[in-house]
């Protein structure tokens, strides 16, 4: 039986050298792997790593605690006669300011950890087409970010609504807007962080960049006396995210907000893709 398989293999390699364009082995059953297989690969890696699960668990805890704190504060302020009315889903959305750091960390680590522990070598052996490897990562992170955003806004609302009571009343429309807006924001933020992670290849560098982009620039830019620099704040991802989730009309509508986020994600991922394609692993 062993001899038979050896013979079959010899015949197979003979046929292959006759047809050099075909590089696929037929020794194991299985379809020609495509983008779906690359996505399955990325999902397995992301979920199998303990740090991902821990980071996401801490993120959920942080979201729930912050939602409780903010809504408790809204209730107390309202009871004391201060203007503190805010729909509960929007309270949950504000809490994403904290949660976004965890998503950004998971997204950056999905590529920077591959560089730091050498896994990038086996990943590229498995999926040598670099646009496919990075594209699959982007798709998985977009899904992870979206699902997280929806779940966090939903869970935050469940806490905030009863705690804030009459000061957190909301409509179904506001809830849907916050759910979708939060999901789209975190999804696209994860893609941005993947782009930054590929560009920098360093976990520390990528996470510091996230701090600068999400917290630093919104604080620093208004300090300059230049109008255009101050105006730039409106076009940062955090501002666009809040507009998208709350349906605010200032400084622009939800459509523009979505477009701004898509452009940020496309530019950063595109730059990462270009560098990833050209650079030696």
């Amino acid at each position: 039986m062993k001899a038979k398989s050896t013979l079959a293999r010899a015949r197979l390699s003979q046929r292959r050298t006759g047809e050099p364009a075909v590089g696929e082995s037929a020794q194991l059953p299985g379809a020609r792997p495509g983008f779906g297989a690359a996505i399955a690969f990325e999902l397995t890696k992301l979920w199998a790593v303990r740090s991902t699960r821990i980071t996401l668990a801490v993120m959920v805890l942080g979201q729930l605690s912050m939602a409780w704190l903010l809504s408790f504060s809204a209730k107390a302020s309202g009871d004391n006669g201060y203007e503190a009315v805010m729909p509960a889903p929007f309270i949950a959305l504000v809490c994403l300011n904290l949660a976004q750091l965890f998503i950004a960390t998971v997204a950056a680590l999905s590529i920077t950890s591959e560089y730091s522990n050498g896994t990038i070598i086996s990943s590229l052996q498995a999926v040598p087409v670099r646009t496919r490897l990075l594209g699959a990562k982007a798709a998985v992170l977009l899904m992870l970010g979206f699902v997280s955003g929806v779940a966090l806004v939903g869970a935050g609302t469940l806490i905030a609504a009863p705690v804030a009571a009459q000061y957190g009343r909301f409509t179904i429309g506001e809830l849907l807007l916050a759910l979708v807006g939060g999901g789209v924001y975190l999804g696209l933020l994860a893609v941005m962080m993947l782009g930054i992670g590929v560009l920098l290849r360093s976990t520390a560098g990528a996470i510091s960049s996230a701090f600068v982009l999400l917290f630093g620039l919104p604080q620093i830019l208004p300090l300059f006396a230049l109008d255009w620099l101050q105006a730039l704040v409106s076009y940062l991802p955090t501002t666009a995210g809040q507009v998208l989730g709350t349906g605010a009309l200032e400084p622009y509508g939800t459509g523009t907000a979505a477009l701004i986020l898509v452009i940020w994600a496309a530019v950063l991922l595109g730059a990462g893709m270009w560098v990833f394609h050209r650079r030696d692993a």
Binding site: R16, V22, E24, P33, P128
Partner: peptide
């Protein structure tokens, strides 16, 4: 087998 690694349909196979 006559092609570059990136052109292999299922490289690990």
């Amino acid at each position: 087998n006559g092609v570059s690694y990136g052109q292999l349909a299922a490289p690990l196979r």
